[in-house]
Nucleic acid binder design. Sequence first.
DNA 1: AATAGTCACTTTCGATTCGAAAGTCATTAT
DNA 2: ATAATGACTTTCGAATCGAAAGTGACTATT
Lengths: 131, 131
Amino acid sequence: MSAGSLSDTYDFRSRCSIARTMEILGDRWTLLIVRDLMWHGKHTFQELQTSAERMPSNQLSQRLKRLVDWGLVTKEAYQERPVRYRYVLTERGRALEPVLLQIMQWGHETLGGGLYDPVAGRTVSPRSVER
Amino acid sequence: MSAGSLSDTYDFRSRCSIARTMEILGDRWTLLIVRDLMWHGKHTFQELQTSAERMPSNQLSQRLKRLVDWGLVTKEAYQERPVRYRYVLTERGRALEPVLLQIMQWGHETLGGGLYDPVAGRTVSPRSVER
DNA sequence: AATAGTCACTTTCGATTCGAAAGTCATTAT
DNA sequence: ATAATGACTTTCGAATCGAAAGTGACTATT
């Protein structure tokens, strides 16, 4: 575990790795931000906000702050005057890819969602179950 | 995908498998219930409620209902007079094991949580990061 | 010089959800 | 009769959510 982020000193309620992870990723939005940063080339506030699921901007703002606090994402200015920011996954954040892949697999198989291929960079088979 | 549960007709907001999965598992408690059913031999309301993280009984009640609605869990009476229930993962529910394993791995590596070995049936290395 | 536009947020505020505690109901045990 | 157990449900104040509008720092256009 690398140094310098909240998770080094944070007092978790549980010693269980899954419970701990849920304290970070256990909501509707956080993993979607990670998905967009990881696979969909979205890096600015604007890009993330206009993502498919339309998460409210105040939620996005909050989640990004937490992700930075947890050391999963860094925020860097990519230009001055006016200053604009880019969000990038850290190594810890990128280490979530296998988690994302497994969740995607399960969601595809049991809920009929799309299957994104990170190598090809596109969604392979977006089955639809609605209607 | 097998027949007969909510996810066959439910109208998801997104076609993304990850977003869809988050509509089911995207909270602090649901995956912990799945964990307990899958690995820790907890099957009754009581057992689940007295699990390590002490989830409130009304939340447990609600989540179990949802899990049944989504077809990830079945509820069966294991005795009459007085009637007592047992919750069991369906095939869909058990298919979450790889997801659980990946999340556990990540939580272990980056948050210092324990590592449970489903084959050995015990937690191998509960690192502690608190303090 | 004035107006419009863009980006990155923050604020507001009503609605929803959470969670701690206590209560309910059926039935068995003492 | 009283206590105990299991499986919930109810209550209710506190925290969180989310839709919409607002803010501040600029740049671009007329």
